[in-house]
């Protein structure tokens, strides 16, 4: 019973946080561009609009199942990320998982959806999937290396243990292991599918993308899971680098400040092509990561 209520609460919180954060992002974006921008609820309306469409077109069973897999993957991810520290609530099933599992769970859904895109038979969709996988290949290496520095620092893959080791502000990994944070920051933005690495699922203007054939309620489901997944990733980084949160307002505050940071970065840079993205990730963040490894592991004071 506890588990069910807890799971529902996590799903609900991540959804609400998701659309409010995205709404904020669009507002913020608009203000930077000297516009008024849509309301904070705009993403909720968009999502509801799609979920209330009366017609939905499928291209066969696999096309229908793809969005289901990605949504189930998003829910599973949310449930395996602990939202709160030292609490019975909002833990989901995170006791049974670990950081590496979460990193892989983040990819399960998109791969499932890639099957649906493929079965639609639209070459533009498959092109988008290939771009997505290519970008994934670029971002995952520095992202994982940065997280591995954290795992090495605490000698565990358990998110709970890493969170528990950061008691005060001074113990936050953000301050004890700043290299790791800098290394993961840009790949993290890319994994959120945010500008300047957003050519894959380009929201408005690029025709070729994984969503090219999705419409109606299936697209609504894709939007829903996207918002939940965004929050799950934010909470994960908060857990790992900002000491987690004791209660929901603090969680929202921390996640929001992190979101503000990433949003500010993504607003001011122009979009990169896929191969530029990969090349950039393998040069700058990965190079930094290698330097970090040399500094913390190879050099005598590290060991």
């Amino acid at each position: 019973m506890h588990a069910i209520v807890d799971s529902l609460a996590m799903i609900g919180i991540s959804y609400v946080m998701g659309f409010l954060f995205y709404g904020f992002y669009r507002q913020f974006n608009a203000r930077v561009q000297r516009r008024w921008g849509p309301s904070l609820w705009q993403n909720f309306f968009d999502n509801m609009k799609f979920l209330l469409k009366t017609e939905t077109l499928t291209h066969g069973p696999m096309f229908f199942l793809g969005p289901m897999i990605i949504a189930a993957g998003a829910i599973t991810t949310v449930l395996f990320v602990p939202f709160l520290k030292d609490s019975d609530w909002l833990q989901g099933f995170s006791e049974h998982g670990n950081l590496i599992l979460i990193i892989y769970l983040l990819v399960v859904g998109p791969l499932g959806n890639a099957l649906a895109v493929g079965s639609s038979g639209n070459p533009f969709g498959v092109m988008g999937v290939t771009r997505g996988l290519t970008r994934l290949m670029g971002l995952e290496v520095p992202f994982f290396l940065g997280l591995a520095l954290v795992m090495l620092q605490h000698e565990t893959t358990s998110v709970h243990a890493i969170m528990a080791a950061q008691d005060g502000l001074a113990q936050w990994n953000l301050f004890t292991n700043p290299i790791a944070f800098i290394v993961i920051l840009l790949p993290f933005i890319a994994s959120q599918n945010a500008s300047p690495f957003d050519v894959v699922g380009a929201p408005v203007e690029v025709y070729a993308g994984p969503r090219v054939e999705f419409g109606g309620r299936l697209l609504g489901l894709l939007m829903t899971q996207n918002m939940m997944m965004t929050v799950a990733k934010l909470v994960l980084v908060v857990d790992l680098f900002m000491g987690g949160a004791g209660n929901v307002p603090i969680l929202i505050l921390k996640a929001f400040s992190l979101f503000l940071l990433t949003a500010s970065i993504s607003l001011v840079f122009p979009r990169l092509k896929t191969e530029q993205t990969v090349d950039f990730f393998w040069k700058v963040p990965l190079g930094l990561g290698v330097l970090g490894v040399i500094a913390t592991v190879w050099l005598p004071w590290g060991a």
Binding site: E55, F64, M68, A72, I75, T76, F80, R217
Partner: peptide
Amino acid sequence: TVFGTAFALVTGGFFLLRGRMRRA
């Protein structure tokens, strides 16, 4: 179990509320 349950619930729920879904 978690993944399977989530998948079953999402698929079941969506199928019940699918509106007019048709194959191309």
